[in-house]
Design a protein around this nucleic acid. Structure first.
Length: 294
DNA sequence: CGCCATTAGTGGG
DNA sequence: CCCACTAATGGCG
């Protein structure tokens, strides 16, 4: 499909910070069972404890210690327990200033079925770029109608991440153009830039069923989670939880379409295309977004 | 009782 | 045929 891929990762001014944050988030998410101390972590990344403490808190919204808490099984179960509380929705519907849904990423979307996509005749042009972010390297793919894909990988895995993504839309023409995708990266991973008046435009390319599932994912507020079976209920196919799992797994715009907020009924994280560790990290990170909210 | 491992039923791709 | 599910079941502390 793609002959010569020459991945170029942008180096942002904060590149070094990103790298440290990424390492710490990954370390805690991976080793949370052994409760690593701040001392151990700072030794691992070669940064003085107090500096690390400050840097991490600035980026993740909560201290390393709190992050460690947020990443446990108990926390995941608590997210599910909260899903039944009717708290938020009612007030949104009527436009009241209810409990804040500050710090959520706003998106608008349109759907495109694989059929539409094909019948367009000429191949769709997809621009892509690699960008550093707290969860590793983000591969962003966009058409002129909006963002179509977001994948993650670790340094050195850029090519296989690109292949994974580009295999989903084989007929598209791919052009590496980090400048075109940079603004998405800036907005997505910087919560202070999440504003309802500047939503991110998404193009959902999938079957009807998949698009329905992805839309349901978009309804899950940040800092909360739901189960595959709850989503199945919601889209009117109560026995299709397994199929829902497959559709969630096929979500091409990870993180922005928050597939990491879908858990097994037991609270187990069950799976993530880009690694369970990353899923756990995202849930922990989102917990931090709520801290400085309201 | 709680915590696995196994199994059968399941709907969509 | 494959699967990022789940409820039911049985074994084992």
């Amino acid at each position: 499909m793609n002959m010569s891929v020459k991945p170029q990762v942008n180096i942002t001014p904060n590149g070094m910070d990103y790298e440290v944050i990424r390492k710490v988030i990954e370390l805690i998410s991976k080793e949370y069972q052994s409760q690593p101390s701040l001392e151990a972590i700072s030794h691992e990344v070669g940064l003085e404890q107090t500096k690390l403490q400050k840097l991490f808190t600035r980026w993740a919204g909560l201290s390393p210690k709190a992050f460690l808490q947020a990443v446990t099984i108990d926390h995941a179960k608590r997210l599910l327990a909260e899903e039944n509380l009717p708290l938020l929705e009612a007030s949104y519907e009527v436009g009241l200033s209810g409990p804040s849904r500050l710090h959520d990423l706003f998106v608008t979307h349109e759907a495109m079925s694989p059929g539409d996509f094909k019948s367009g005749g000429e191949a769709l042009e997809i621009k892509y770029g690699f960008h550093q972010c707290p969860f590793g390297i983000a591969l962003i793919m966009a058409t002129d109608r909006g963002m179509a894909g977001l994948a993650f990988c670790d340094p050195g895995e850029e090519v296989s991440a690109f292949e994974d993504m580009s295999n989903r839309w084989k007929r598209a023409r791919y052009v590496q153009d980090p400048n075109a995708t940079q603004s998405y990266a800036d907005q997505i991973f910087n919560p202070e830039k999440w504003q309802s008046d500047k939503p991110i435009q998404l193009v959902l390319i999938g079957t009807d069923f998949q698009v329905e599932v992805w839309q349901a994912l978009l309804d899950i507020p940040i800092g909360t989670a739901t189960t595959y079976s709850t989503i199945a209920d919601k889209i009117g196919r109560p026995k299709a939880s397994r199929a829902v799992g497959a559709a969630v797994g096929a979500n091409p715009i990870s993180f922005v379409v928050p597939c990491h907020r879908a858990l097994g009924k037991s609270g187990a994280l069950t799976g993530y295309h880009w690694g369970i560790t990353r899923k756990r990290a995202m849930l922990g990170w989102e917990c931090g977004m709520l801290e400085n909210g309201a």
